[in-house]
């Protein structure tokens, strides 16, 4: 945290997304290319909570600074920005417009905001649990020529240098870079705090700036959205340990997976 103490103040950008709760059952809307939103509860994207918590902890460690929650989307994202403010973000920016199916078009909008923001760090969630695109973070970094590591599960900052860890198949990769940098945050990085009642009250008075934007030309178009085929109903082979031989027989002879 030396770096931040020297700088006196740290400024961290947390781009967030509003997504359906993971307990939601997905159905397809009449247009055949989007999700039916009726009756769905929307929440702050779970991975963005890890990013926000990391940002808040760094600011607290530095003793001074600003954590800015940023969301690109329609007016409904303001509710999600208020959630981030309730958790402890200092201010919020609503990039008001319609996000594109093309992640790069969205990244250009965010990069434009980050470029002029004077940020030391930009912390994204690893992915949004709706579109699973997991690309806006590293694209934003690439557009701005900033160092980037994705899906980090550990982060420490000392003397202007960040050290991170990320899970890869069969191991954990370690990496370092200097700030400013862009990271996307995985589960395991921390345990996000819950908004306190005081935080919820304070959030109503925190600044929320609205900036109209528009995503440029899209090179990705959603053709359709469908539900995956249902699995055929299975069988209960029996009860207790006595059913093990019947299960083995099925796995060996019918399913042929043993």
């Amino acid at each position: 945290m030396d770096n931040f103490k020297r700088n006196k103040s740290v400024k961290i950008c947390i781009p967030i997304r509003r997504v359906p709760d993971t307990t939601a059952k997905v159905t397809i809307a009449a247009d055949g290319s989007s999700v039916n939103e009726t009756g769905i509860k929307f929440v702050l994207n779970p991975y963005d909570e890890f990013a926000l918590e990391a940002g808040l902890a760094l600011r607290e460690g530095a003793g001074a600074g600003e954590v800015v929650a940023v969301a690109f989307g329609p007016d409904s994202v303001q509710e999600t920005l208020r959630t981030a403010l309730a958790m402890g973000a200092d201010s919020a920016v609503h990039l008001q417009g319609k996000p594109s199916a093309d992640g790069l078009a969205n990244a250009r909008v965010l990069a434009e905001h980050v470029k002029g923001g004077g940020y030391d760090l930009v912390l994204f969630g690893k992915l949004a649990v709706d579109d699973y695109n997991q690309q806006t973070g590293p694209m934003t970094a690439e557009l701005l020529g900033l160092p980037c590591a994705t899906a980090i599960s550990s982060l420490s900052v000392t003397g202007g240098v960040a050290t991170v860890e990320r899970e890869v198949e069969g191991g954990v990769e370690t990496a370092t870079c200097s700030l400013p940098a862009v990271f996307t945050c995985d589960k395991g990085l921390n345990t996000p705090r819950l908004p306190s009642l005081k935080g919820i009250m304070a959030a109503k008075k925190k600044p929320l700036e609205v900036v109209p934007v528009s995503a440029g030309e899209a090179m990705a178009r959603v053709v359709s959205l469908s539900l995956p085929p249902e699995r055929a109903a299975g069988v209960i082979v029996g009860e207790g340990a006595a059913a093990v031989p019947a299960l083995m027989e099925a796995l060996i002879s019918k399913a042929k997976v043993l």
């Binding site: 690309q135 806006t136 590293p138 090179m219």
Partner: peptide, 23 residues
Amino acid sequence: ATATGKDLAPRLAASIGGPCGMD
């Protein structure tokens, strides 16, 4: 689309200026 591929693909897309089809 391994952990590394998912990390690399968006950077490549942004650098080339094309869309990214993930996973």
